[in-house]
């Protein structure tokens, strides 16, 4: 394993040692059930704005046109590519709004800060690796080099975990209720002929607002 990959694993281990929650950072520490009523309003105002904008207007484009989101968008397009031909009815990462979804999901009040930082740090690692191996950042690589690079970093614990984390959120962008910002108009449900059931969650009853 390359030295870079080894250094990631060491860094990851330090994170885990320093923060026992890190290992389960996707787990809930839900607001509301334990008496923190109204905590949803503790969301930073820029975030409230961002949440609204991502759902309603073009403002989120501004946030998502900077790193780490640019690289994440490129990675997601590789992990879940657009349809290959006219017979392929599958949506790609763009169609399911994978990047926007990840951005929003990571801001949810039950998501550990360490999780957000890990996602961001992974982007730095990936680009560092890409420059060392291919002399270009990840977004400048050919399709086949992107595949090679991701398969290589998958061999390290940290790299595997980073891709796996992105995939966890991608599956949610594909199949969670559109109220969370992915799966627009149920595009993922339609593709997979999946029935979401009813009633569906309204915006004011998203999981982190239940109390």
């Amino acid at each position: 394993m390359s030295l870079i990959l080894q250094s990631w694993d060491k860094a990851l281990q330090r994170e885990i040692d320093a923060n026992p929650n890190f290992a389960v950072s996707r787990r809930q520490f839900l607001l509301g059930t334990t008496g923190l009523a109204g905590a949803a309003f503790l969301l930073p105002s820029w975030l409230e704005a961002a949440q609204k904008s991502t759902l309603n207007s073009k403002k989120s484009d501004k946030i998502l046109t900077s790193e780490p989101w640019l690289t994440i968008e490129v990675v997601y397009n590789h992990l879940f590519p657009p349809p290959t031909d006219s017979k392929d009815d599958s949506p790609g990462a763009k169609q399911i709004k994978a990047t926007e979804y990840l951005f929003l999901a990571l801001q949810a009040p039950d998501i550990e800060k360490s999780q957000r930082q890990f996602v961001e740090k992974g982007v730095k690692w990936l680009n560092q690796f890409s420059v060392t191996e291919y002399k270009k950042p990840f977004s400048g690589l050919s399709n086949s080099d992107r595949e090679k690079a991701l398969r290589k970093i998958e061999k390290s614990k940290a790299g595997r975990r980073w891709i796996a984390t992105l995939m966890d959120f991608l599956f949610e962008a594909l199949l969670a209720d559109p109220v969370y910002g992915g799966n627009p108009d149920g595009i993922g449900w339609k593709w997979l002929d999946h029935s979401p059931g009813f009633p569906r969650p309204p915006k004011n009853k998203r999981y982190f607002l239940l109390t």
């Binding site: 949610e172 009853k205 998203r206 999981y207």
Partner: peptide
């Protein structure tokens, strides 16, 4: 110990019911 949810708080929301365990206590607290 927990809150008082009613029929109006239950949806077919996989994030709430399965992926994020919204009806269980936080493991940080308990």
């Amino acid at each position: 110990k927990g809150p008082w949810f009613t029929e109006k708080d239950f949806f077919k929301d996989e994030l709430a019911s399965s992926q994020r365990d919204a009806y269980k206590p936080s493991l940080k607290d308990e």
